[in-house]
Amino acid sequence: MASMALDFIRDGDIVGLGTGRAATAFVRALGQAVKAGLRVTAVSTSQVTAALATQLGIPLATLDEVSHIDVTFDGADEVDPRLDLIKGYGGALVREKIVAASSRRLIILVGAEKLVPVLGSRGILPVEIVPFGLPLCRRRLTELGCRPAVREHDGQPFVTDNGNYILDCSISPLSDPAAFEQAILGVPGVVGTGLFIGMADTVLVQDGDTVTVQQRRDP
């Protein structure tokens, strides 16, 4: 699937690089293409991905240094029939959303197991928060019907590349994801959610040896 995704890149493109297992496979494929002569400049969504891209010889730039991003490749944790997403199990949701919003096209790479009938089917929505706001955010998110838990790493709160915490919110399937996101964003201290509504243009789905392409259909 990663090699198939390369077909969406033109020589000279500015390419956004996601974070997570699917994105890592893509970055490795892109590194091979760059070594073979493909010219690109990449913008990374995380320090981990940036380190891998540097190791593979992929030229990197920051958002300050580019006028746009032609296409971003990333994974997702849930994809519904409208191609709306839940992301953030890898912890880079806010930077991923910023890069996606800066892109002319967002292409998502997933296995068939990530397809869900309704967002929230896997039961977890990551929400990035400012550490100072933890008590308030935890209380307000509970009032919204979430059951928030601070994500941990080695017994300590997981800290994002932005210096923030993530609350993994236990949720039920969402009847109105956009409205739910707006309610969460109204809580002081919330930086962003893992809901990516109306952002993905194309989803490549791998099921065994078969890869299918799904395109967003605007209403």
Score class of each variant (00 low, 15 high):
G91S: 06
L167E: 00
E128A: 04
L185G: 03
T45L: 07
A51D: 11
L63M: 13
V187I: 15
D161N: 12
Q206I: 05
A183I: 00
S3I: 07
R10A: 10
G31H: 06
T193H: 08
G189E: 03
E78G: 09
T193Y: 08
S103T: 13
V110H: 05
Q215G: 02
A22S: 15
T62R: 13
G111C: 04
C146F: 12
Y165A: 06
D207F: 00
D7A: 15
L204V: 04
L141R: 02
N164V: 01
A92D: 08
D77A: 02
L141A: 03
E96G: 04
F8G: 01
A5S: 07
V99A: 01
L6P: 03
A2E: 15
G18M: 05
G155I: 12
A178W: 00
D77Y: 03
F180M: 09
T19F: 02
P81F: 12
P135A: 08
E65A: 14
V118P: 00
I129E: 03
R138I: 01
P135S: 09
M199A: 14
Q156T: 08
T142C: 02
R105W: 00
E113I: 08
V118G: 03
E78S: 07
D161K: 12
A29C: 10
R28S: 10
A29N: 11
T54Q: 12
D154A: 11
G189S: 05
F196V: 06
H153W: 07
V203L: 09
T49I: 12
P177T: 02
D84H: 10
D218T: 15
V203R: 05
L174N: 08
A53D: 12
M1V: 09
E143G: 03
P131R: 11
E152P: 00
A42I: 08
P135Q: 13
I171T: 06
F180I: 00
F26A: 06
P177W: 00
A200G: 13
Q47R: 15
R151M: 01
V213A: 06
L85P: 00
